[in-house]
Structure formats: C-alpha cells, structure tokens
Design a protein around this nucleic acid. Structure first.
Lengths: 149, 149
DNA sequence: GGAGCTAATTAGCACTGCTAACTATTATGC
DNA sequence: GCATAATAGTTAGCAGTGCTAATTAGCTCC
C-alpha cells in the first residue's frame, strides 16, 4: 500500500516521470471533480469565492489568478452574482473596471463548501503514513511551482 | 499562521495538505490540458488510444478503465473511429458486445501525441533536482493509489 | 478631439462528464 | 418455448469549463 520507499532506479527518467505524474494528476483531478458533486457551487465558483474572501478584486485580476481568460471569469462571476454570493461595484476612478466582492451569503456557502470539498481528499490523506503525507506535501509545492510558469 | 512550513514539519495536517494538493492537482491538470492543444487528438481520445495499444477492449471495459460512463466512452470511440484511429468488431459469441481495437493509423498518431503530450511536463521535470524528481515520482504513485478507490 | 489601448461583456464553439430513454441481444424462469 | 429480466451499446439532451472573435464603454495620449 505504501509507495514510500521506492527500490527502483537510482535516477528518475524525466519522460517516464512525466507520464506517471500526468496520469496521477488527471486521475486525481477527475476524482476530485466527481467527489465534489452535490454541492451548491461548482469547482470554478468555489476557487473564485475563496480568492474573494481575502478581499475584492477586479474581473481581470480574478481571471489572472485563475489563469483563465476574461470571458470565462465573466461567466463564473455571473453565476455567483445570480446566486447572491458576490456583488459588483463600479470603480469611480475607472469606469471600465468592476470590483467584485464576496457577500455574507457567499462567505457562508464558501465555509460550507470548503469542508465538503476537501472532505474526500482529506480522508484519503489522513489514512496515509506520515512519510507519505510529507512526500505529497512537498510534491504539491513542486507542482505548484512548475505549473505557475 | 502556517506551522507546516519548517524544514522539518513535525506533522502534516490532513486538511491543510488536502487543500494544497487539490490546488496543485487542479492547476497542473489545467496546465496539461492547455499545453496539449494543437494536437490531432483530444486528451480523452489519447488515453483511450493508449489503453487500446495494449490490446482490444470492449466499450464497457474501456469505460471502466477510464472511470467514465458508457455513453461518454461511446462518444470518444465514435470520434476515434471517425478519424480511422480505431475500429469496431462484433463479437460472434455475444452479439451485444463490440470489440474496439487500434488501427495502424491510430498507433502512429498515438506515438506522435505521446511525445508531444508529455513534452511540456517532461521539460519541467527535467529541470528539477534529482531529489524533487524522486519526490514527484513517489507522490505520483501515492496519488494513483488514492484515486484508484 | 480622434486614434488607440484596456476592461468587460456577449455570442458561439469545443471537450467532457452526466442521466434518461431506447434498441438489440442474451440469460432466466415458469 | 416463450415471456421477462438483465446486459451492452447507442442516442439525445443537459451542465460545466475552457477558448476566440467581436462589441461596447471608458481612459490615454498626441
């Protein structure tokens, strides 16, 4: 069950690892999507709400944070706005910009979703050895750096 | 705030790790999707083709391998079939079943895609330290086990 | 003040997942 | 042996998420 000690090759081939990692990432991401069903908000809405919880942002800023194009973010914000989880405010200094902020209802649903969303993964992770958890923790940071560009 | 980041975190909190890992996985999977653009086949078609390269399968088997429902697999197989990358054969022993196998053209496009698809990730991975690669390798196996069910 | 840039939106396409409903075939049961 | 149930696959339609192209509105600079 534990993949902690790999008695494999002393050197990790980049292309072999790439295939392994790709498979692992795609499989886990699909699983996360599946396990998130039954929630009030969608995955995309969730991460945006999480960002807004730290303070209001313009649409462009949100799009960049999520690495999506502006139209994609417009749609997500529209959905959140329609549910009353965020509100738009015009910027008096720049009429082109729109500030988006989370509403109290949005904060509530965020807190709810936050626990549900990571429930499956947290449970899996809790069942691992301390060593495996450490490996995953380090890997998470490496992957985030790699994907950041 | 984060007691987890120290050179030797005594204990990794499962819920903190879950959030970290989720973010890392979703971000990397999105990046992989983006980097795969410009290819002949879609990500879903790619993995199916890869499975078929090891031998023909029924549609149901393919769906289970990919953890998707039968209709989703039908669509993927239709797309591959339309491009001439797979072929359907009726099972003489059970008229309900359809065996799907890869064609020579499919094998060609698979080999092509295989290098392109992991190119981005392989390049990133190649730039890491041996230690980081080992961490990712171990993490990949842990994640695959976790997501397998 | 007009040209050009930027922010946001709208419209429409593609991929991927799902459920529900339907057809065809095989297995079961009286 | 024929009716019923179960299984394999398909079709149709919905939802979520990403994209590009085009449009509108406001700001900037010459």
């Amino acid at each position: 069950m534990s993949a902690a000690i790999d008695d494999g090759p002393a050197e990790i081939q980049a292309d072999v690892l790439a295939i392994d990692l790709r498979t692992a990432v795609m499989r886990t991401s699909r699983r996360l999507r599946i396990e998130a069903t039954g929630e009030v908000i969608t995955p995309g809405q969730y991460t945006v709400l999480a960002h807004l919880n730290s303070g209001s942002q313009t649409l462009r800023e949100l799009a960049e944070l999520e690495h999506v194009q502006a139209p994609s973010m417009t749609r997500i914000v529209n959905a959140l706005s329609g549910q009353g989880f965020v509100s738009r405010q015009a910027n008096p200094e720049d009429g082109r910009q729109v500030h988006i902020s989370i509403t109290p209802a949005g904060q509530e649903v965020l807190a709810e979703a936050r626990s549900q969303r990571t429930a499956w993964l947290a449970q899996r992770v809790a069942g691992l050895s301390e060593e495996d958890r450490l490996t995953l923790s380090r890997a998470a940071h490496i992957m985030q750096e790699m994907s950041a560009k």
